[in-house]
Design a protein around this nucleic acid. Structure first.
Lengths: 145, 145
DNA sequence: GATAAGGGTTCCCACTGTTGGAAGGTCAAG
DNA sequence: CTTGACCTTCCAACAGTGGGAACCCTTATC
């Protein structure tokens, strides 16, 4: 099976398959004499695993670890669980940050008349932060996730 | 005031101030004879506005619009409000996606013994998605936000 | 056998936003 | 006059993904 079919079968674009191979997330596959990559069913299986993990928000590095555990038949499920729960904690943290942003903005928007006059509490707040409640205290995000 | 002081006073790093200038988010400022950028209090004020908007999760493009409204004394607060609420909707969408990921993973983790045995429902699910409930249906994220 | 369509291959660029560093000029204090 | 802390520009990198160019391969059709 060539890369296009593998892409269709796995839901991972051909571009990304090449990228994953280049960056070592997946091992290089065999090639035809002409240089075409050849994929087997297990390869596609692995690609689907990767896609599913991305769907769950794992970073490529996280997936690297997951793949390691997946391939390791002597793994301990505790390791997988820890990896998953760490990721859940990251997600929840990110959610809280976004939630804070959204609720702050919503509060401000609720105070804004939203008419044809120029005065607007949203701009006022951006201009001169009045330390509105931000449950987490720390506000600044540092990685896009 | 030079860029370092402006950075300290605004909370925007010198690097980012230069970047914002280069990309046209903020207009170029005056320079000393030696080429040092000179910032005034209003400049720092604007930088603080920008930083605050970034803290609320606005993209640079969003900030561009906000700045335009901020500077426009004939603006209509309705435009600001619309901008803000659109952003809130984006945030809430993203939150829902992350929430789905987190709850799916949490459900799976709860089913995982987390012991020294290798069998693990998390890996099983990644391997062969059993279409767990994902309230939104569409799952794949397409922009990092 | 020639040709065209629709693959594949590599490589480079763009995006978002931010950081890091190198090479070199400048300013203020000692 | 030197030293250290600034400033300047330029270049690279990060994570992931998409777009596209230039070129090769395969297959079907004429």
């Amino acid at each position: 099976m060539n890369i296009g079919e593998a892409a269709k079968g796995s839901g991972v674009s051909a571009k990304m398959i090449r990228y994953y191979e280049e960056t070592g997330l997946i091992p290089p596959v065999a090639r035809t004499e002409a240089g075409y990559r050849i994929y087997s069913d297990p390869d596609v299986h692995m690609l689907r695993f990767i896609r599913r993990a991305r769907d769950l928000g794992f970073s490529v590095d996280g997936i690297r670890e997951l793949l390691g555990l997946w391939r390791d038949h002597d793994r301990q499920s505790a390791d997988v669980k820890r990896l998953a729960l760490t990721h859940v904690a990251d997600l929840r943290l990110k959610i809280r940050e976004l939630e804070d942003m959204a609720s702050t903005l919503e509060t401000l928007a609720a105070c804004c008349h939203g008419n044809d006059r120029p005065d607007c509490p949203i701009l006022s707040e951006l201009e001169a932060p009045t330390s509105l409640p931000t449950k987490t205290g720390k506000f600044r995000k540092q990685n896009g996730f």
